[in-house]
Every structure is written in structure tokens, then in C-alpha cells.
Design a protein around this nucleic acid. Structure first.
Lengths: 396, 396
DNA sequence: ACAGATTCTGAATCGTGGA
DNA sequence: GTCCACGATTCAGAATCTG
């Protein structure tokens, strides 16, 4: 439950912003005590540290945080070459009296995040050079384990009007697990497939949030000064969460995390101090149409494929006991034994171990190394495993 | 003068490595007392903190530092999929017992740098996510003023062999002035001219240091595990120093900073703990031919066409997740998934892989094969990629 | 000599599950 | 907790080898 200083969006206005049929009213586990029930797909209004302290420990799968950047802008307004005024971030929530105060704030919210994270959860934080070094250091000090730093390269950054520095054309995200030993979620195969079969790199090229996506008020002014593009959130959530996972955003703002989570079939918990932002977020999220389950299902990771013992390949008759296997060029030979091991001279062992042995290597994937002769052609034995998996597929 | 624990490269071997006609014997200011004379274009061998403490205060115009990254690699060797062994950085100079020890080392050398920097000097530090947050925080704590963080995007990074993270495809440089009020050097116009009249951005695309540029010993092994590309140093020195300026590099290694400084008509002071590296640096720098004053201009960088992942096309909204693609004649259909893969029946994969699959071909260019319907017309998806490339402009 | 094929390598915090 | 078997995993560019 939320702490006394925290209310669910939007308190008095709850009837408008929190629909009766929302998912939060259907907790996934009926046995969870009421006091521990997660406010799923809800927006808590209040201080994020107090709100997180009111959540049960080890309850969320992922955190996405876009904290204040502590920009420390000068007093005077920045003018463009045409003398128009740059609409800078000068809100009170970005005012800190010192680096020490910012550090202490950073440690406090990161500590609160760490408590509510499941052991295998991971956390994303976005920032610029003003604050990201403080955040990264705090993360490491608190025991988080950095997995990557990711560079969001902006397609259309604001130019440096004074010509005094390089165009600040990127922001940095840190992706970290709760502990060095955590078994975090990472959809390697899916990301690779979406990148034309190349590994996804640590530098992402994504446009700013503009146009229809940018929330505007009645007067046409942007509702929030630092609204992030949905594409950025989509890539983070697709890579590091599963459908149904709970994503916590302690600096919810206008709810990009919630909108993307809903669209991608994830659950969210948002925390936001300003009720104006929370109300805008609620309206925005309510209008989001989730993608169908079928569209959403991620490409199965290779390692999730059913394990086929080499013995089963023999039992199925694809390879015969007593048959001789060789490598691709026919330099090495091994005899298949009925128990699923192979034999070279007096030595026998698994297809992997013997493959490594004959090559003098520390390790070897025997499935890709050994070949059988079929119709005068050498056929890699992984072919037989693939055949068996196809047959198993319909059952699984 | 250098401290007692510091010797000029290479001490006994000075006759070979330090030529009589070297620039160091002609200080620019005759009034500087002998004891305060700068060891210009020399390499000091020894601990960098002691060596810097032996230099006069406020005497250098720029610092470039490539400190140990504190990688904290695990015990076991990392093997590639082909079982070859990755030649990791496991040198003693990158071993620190704790984060606290690394922090104290970082503060010490940064403090020493700050003392020898002229009031308007600026400093560059390069690092990876392992150390850059410690460095950035220390910089801010010591009173430096961060001007930019720069991302060095590697053209040819090492892949992530285990498929457990994003390919670590960049390193970060921090550019900072000694004080918030410093009037630092920045050659805005020159950089813009070399960038087709667009402001130089904070993300730089530069290949690794390989080939003839990479120093090798007699056995053909790399002399230094982390030699930086000269292109990287050239861009930093061209942007933030003037000809004749003094550049200090406290972690000189094999002297990339010195080689580039000499070529670009800057003076250097190198400090290096390992005499083997220092000797290699001396030989390398002696072979460098300086450019004529007239030639000192920024060469426009060549750029390949930027690669656009299909996922980015979806993120940009040109194609919608859940939408159906077809081939030119409408014989085959595939559904777009939010992660950038496409799906035919139960099978999913990249646009290329699935294009090949449905046609029964070994390969297929998905960009030319798949079409989306727009206004009753089939539009090949390469159209959307071309659109995005126009927007990306010089961003490759 | 030259084109094409093959090999090599780069700052790396790089596994999982059962006994 | 530890130990061990199993087995999954790479991209671009340059260097080197082959025909």
C-alpha cells in the first residue's frame, strides 16, 4: 500500500483518471495480503521515496527512472541566433542546492528502488553529463552491477546556439542489475532479429519526442519539459522485460513508461509528485490500445529450445551405434557407442569433450563439429537434432 | 623539473631517445627559471602524480588522459564461438583492490593535473562504463566544469560473444575546463567546416586503432593493449588547442598524444610508468613528420551510408507493429512485430530471414522484398529506410 | 600481380542447471 | 554454498593466404 503521504492518481479526481475496470483491481495472486497488494497500472501521487517504501520488497521486475538532471543553468535566458528564447528546464523540481544534496537524493531513491526490485530485476536510468556520473557512481556504490551504458543519439538535437561547445546530441542510459550474480532478462535473439541479424549495439539512434506524440495543453504548450520518446522506452522494455512483467517508474512525469508498458503487454507502477503530470499521464495511458498477444510473443530464444541428448538421436535411428563420425574436412574420426558417447582410439566421452580433445581446444560444440556420411555427403549431426526438435515442436 | 622519482626517457638511454635538436632545448619563454623549465616534447618515466608535482603550476594548455579503466574482469578466459581466446586487458596497471582505492587514485592524479593547468586550460579523459562515472564525479567534486561528454562510436567493436548484453560499441570522453569561468579554446568554425557546415556533434564515429598504425613488437604482438586511434586524438587537439600549445598526457603509453601533437604543431609532455612503452613512444614520435602550418586544417571525415535497423523504422512510425507486409505480388504475407522481426505463421525472424524462408531461397534482401500498403498502393519498405537516412544526415 | 577466400582480432565487468 | 557436465555464442576491418 502507498504510504500516508501518497495517494493514488488522482485522489479526489480518481473517478476520472482511474477507471473502474482497470487491471489493478484484478491482482494476479489472490493470496497476496491486501497490505502487500501492488498498485498495478496505477499512478501514485507523492514523493517517490516514500511511495516506494510503501511497496513490498522484491516485487518489481524492472525499473525505468528519468530523474531530475540537476542542470544548473545560468540565470540569464538563452537566446537563439534569431533572438527567440529557448524554453529551458527551470522547474523547481530540478533545483538542488549542491552536488552533495543531489548525491544524497540520488542515493535515497536508488536505495528505495533496490529494495523493491526482485533479485533478478534490472534498472535503467537516463541522464546527461550534468547528473549521469553522480548516478553511475551511486549505482556502483550501492552494489548494482552495470551491464551496459547506452547512448541515445538524438536525430534532431538542439544546436549549441552560442557555438561554444559540441552540439550535445546524446543522452546516456545506464542498465544495471541488482547484483553482479543476477540472472537478468535480455531478449538477445529478438533484438538481433529486429536489427537484421546483427547484435544490437550500445549506441541507439532515435528521434526526439515531437509532433503528435508530444503532449500539449489547451494553449499548445508542452505539458512536460523532458518527455521522452516512446521508441526509447519500447526498446528498453522489449530488451529487458517479459510480457506481464511489472515495470516501476519513480519519476513518471507524463507517463511514457506506462503508455509503452501497456502497449507492450507489461504492467506498470508510476510515481509522480506533480498531480498535473499524473493526470495527463492517466488520460494518455487510458487511450493506449495494447498490441495483441500474438503480435507480442517474442521470438523464442535459441537456448529455450528443448534439449536433445545425443543418445536420443541414436535411439531415433538418425545415427547408428558403431558408425564412424568425422569433422567437416575428414581429418578426425570417432566411433559412435550405444550409450551416446563417441570413441577415438582408447578414449571415449561426450561429442563435445572428444571434439575438443582431438582439436586440442579447451571446448567444442560437438553438434556443429561432427559429421556423418549420408549419400556420399558429410552431414553435420546438428541436422539430426534439428529434425527431432521439429517433431518435438508440435508437442511443446 | 621532474621529481627525484622521475627520469626523462630514457635515462641511461637518453642519447638515443632524446635528440640534441629536440624542441625541449628551446623553451618559448626565456624568463622562466631553469628549475621551472618545462620538459617540452619529452617523456618522463615514473609515477604520473610525482612527475606532475615536479612541474610548475599553471603551465600547460591542455591535458589528455587515458587512465586505467579498472575493468575487474573475471578469472576465466573469454572464448569466442570458434574457441579462440580473447586477449583481454589483465595487466598489473589495471588492478585496483577496491572502488575506494580507484577513487583515491583518480582524485590524486586529477588534483595534480589541475595544479599544472593554466586557468583557461581544458582537460580530456577517456573511459568506459567501468570507470567513467568515478572519473566524472571526481572531476565535478574537484571543481572542474564539464563542457561536453563525447561518445566515441567504434566502427568495429568487439562483439558480445555470449549474447548476454548489448555490444559495447563506444567509449566516453569527458571534456572539462579547470573552472566554470574559464575561457577555454574551442575551434567552432574549423570543426563546423570539416563537418559539411554542420555543428560538430557529441557523437564521433571513428574506427579502432589497427593495421600499420598499431604498434607491434618484433614478434608481431601489440606493444600496448589499449592504443588509441590517432584520429580520436587529432579531433580533440584540433578542437581544443592552438598550434604551439602544451599538451600534457599523464598516461602516455605508446605516445599517441605525442605523435598527434607533433604532427599538428603542438608541444607535449608525456608521463609513463613503464619504460618499455616510453621507449616505443619515443621511437614512434621521432618518426613523425609535422604538418606545415598551412596544412593544419580539419579533413572532412568520409562516411558510409548509415545503417538503419528495421526496428528503427517501426520506432519512427513508418511501419506499425501488427501491420501486415506482403511481397510485390501479394503472394506472401508477414506480420510486423514490435521488436523489428516479422512473423509468418508460427515462425518469426528478421525481414531478410523470413523473406528467404517464404521464397525457399538461401538469402533475400528484405528491404527490397517486403511491401506495406499505403493509400491502396504497395510501397517497398526500403522507401522508409531511405526517408530515415535523409533525416539522419551526417549522423553515421 | 590480382582477386577472392580465409584467418585474425579488438579495454569484456559475457552461463546454466543439476547433484 | 560448491563442483561439474553440458553446450551456446561473433562483427567489421585488416591481414594473410590461395589460386
Amino acid at each position: 500500500m502507498a504510504s500516508p503521504r501518497t495517494v493514488v492518481a488522482g485522489a479526489a479526481a480518481r473517478k476520472q483518471v482511474s477507471r473502474p475496470g482497470r487491471l489493478a483491481s484484478a491482482p494476479r495472486m489472490g493470496l497476496v495480503p491486501a497490505v502487500q497488494r501492488l498498485p498495478l497500472d496505477e499512478i501514485l501521487i507523492g514523493d517517490c521515496i516514500a511511495a516506494m517504501d510503501g511497496l513490498p520488497a522484491a516485487s518489481v521486475d524492472c525499473v525505468f527512472a528519468d530523474p531530475p538532471y540537476n542542470l544548473q543553468l545560468g540565470e540569464g535566458a538563452l537566446l537563439r541566433p534569431d533572438q527567440s528564447r529557448v524554453d529551458a528546464v527551470d522547474d523547481d523540481w530540478d533545483k538542488f542546492s549542491s552536488l552533495a544534496q543531489y548525491d544524497s537524493f540520488t542515493r535515497a531513491w536508488l536505495t528505495a528502488c533496490r529494495r523493491v526490485m526482485k533479485p533478478n530485476a534490472s534498472l535503467w536510468v537516463i541522464g546527461s553529463y550534468h547528473n549521469i556520473f553522480r548516478v553511475g557512481s551511486a549505482l556502483q556504490d550501492l552494489g548494482f552491477w552495470i551491464l551496459n551504458d547506452i547512448v541515445w543519439r538524438k536525430a534532431n538535437p538542439m544546436p549549441n546556439f552560442r557555438g561554444k561547445r559540441f552540439t550535445n546530441a546524446h543522452e546516456t542510459l545506464i542498465w544495471a542489475s541488482r547484483d553482479p550474480s543476477a540472472k537478468y532478462t535480455f531478449h538477445y535473439e529478438a533484438l538481433k532479429g529486429g536489427n537484421e541479424d546483427l547484435q544490437m549495439r550500445s549506441d541507439w539512434f532515435i528521434p526526439l519526442c515531437t509532433g503528435d506524440e508530444r503532449l500539449k495543453d489547451a494553449a499548445g504548450h508542452k505539458v512536460h519539459p523532458t518527455q521522452k520518446p516512446e521508441a526509447l522506452l519500447a526498446r528498453t522494455l522489449l530488451s529487458a522485460t517479459n510480457p506481464g512483467d511489472v515495470v516501476l517508474d519513480p519519476f513518471f512525469g507524463t507517463g511514457t513508461t506506462g503508455a509503452v508498458a501497456k502497449r507492450l503487454g507489461r504492467r506498470f507502477i508510476g510515481i509522480e509528485r506533480e498531480s498535473v503530470y499524473a493526470a495527463a499521464a492517466r488520460r494518455r495511458i487510458d487511450a493506449v490500445e495494447p498490441l495483441s498477444q500474438a503480435t507480442l510473443a517474442l521470438a523464442p530464444a535459441k537456448r529455450a529450445e528443448p534439449r536433445v541428448p545425443f543418445l536420443s538421436v541414436i535411439e531415433a535411428g538418425h545415427v547408428r551405434a558403431g558408425e564412424t563420425l568425422s569433422d567437416a574436412r575428414g581429418r578426425f574420426k570417432a566411433v559412435v557407442r550405444p550409450d551416446g558417447t563417441v570413441m577415438v582410439g582408447p578414449v571415449s566421452g561426450s561429442i563435445h569433450k572428444i571434439g575438443a580433445l582431438v582439436q586440442g581446444l579447451p571446448a567444442c560444440n560437438g553438434w556443429d563439429f561432427w559429421h556423418a556420411e549420408r549419400n556420399g555427403q558429410r552431414v553435420v549431426i546438428d541436422t539430426f537434432r534439428a529434425k527431432m526438435r521439429t517433431q518435438m515442436g508440435s508437442a511443446a
